[in-house]
Simulated assay, not measured.
Amino acid sequence: MTANILKIALLTLIFLSFSEVTHGQNGKVTVDQDAVITKLLEYKKDVKTVDLYKIQLDFGSRSEAEALKSKFLNEFSEWPAEMVYETPNYKVWVGNFSTRLEADIALMKIKKSFTKAMVFEPKKEK
């Protein structure tokens, strides 16, 4: 019986001594990501599945809306602009802002050139 206890104690001592010496692998992971993935993530932000805020510059006839959109894109290239038709007017919408605060900050800059601009939350498509 003492021989068994001695063997168990000896084996335990051996295992404990090896566990102190050996360590897990330490490493550094570097992700080499294609630039296209970053662009895809930006496009994903534009998807209409989340609550977004936009800025409406103005509305009117098609030619007025095209001129307004062109003027906007010449002055502000950091936000996307689109022309939307809602009977009977064409509207120029700007940006995809994830928060109301972000939209309000942009509105302050845009209002200097486009006084009728306003922030709104477009209806979600079902």
Rank of each mutant, 00 (worst) to 15 (best):
Y53K: 00
S19T: 12
D104P: 06
T22V: 13
E125Y: 06
K45V: 15
K111W: 05
I5P: 02
L6S: 13
F72R: 00
S77G: 12
W93K: 03
T22K: 05
P80R: 07
K116R: 12
E64G: 06
E86L: 09
E82F: 02
W93V: 04
E102M: 09
T30S: 11
H23V: 14
A3W: 09
I105S: 11
G24R: 09
D58K: 01
I105K: 12
G60R: 03
P88H: 05
A67C: 03
T49V: 15
Y85G: 02
S63A: 14
M1W: 07
S70M: 03
L10V: 12
F76L: 06
K123V: 07
V29C: 03
D104Y: 09
V36Y: 09
K48S: 14
S63Q: 13
G24A: 13
V94F: 00
I55H: 00
K69A: 06
G95I: 03
F18L: 15
E121I: 11
G95M: 01
I37V: 15
E20N: 14
H23K: 14
Q25V: 15
A35M: 10
F76T: 01
A35F: 09
M118T: 14
P80W: 03
T87F: 09
F114Y: 08
M118K: 14
L73Q: 13
L57T: 03
I14A: 11
P80I: 06
S63L: 06
K124T: 06
I105V: 15
S70D: 12
A3V: 15
T30G: 07
V31N: 08
M83P: 04
A65E: 01
K44R: 12
Q56K: 10
S63T: 12
P122D: 03
G95F: 02
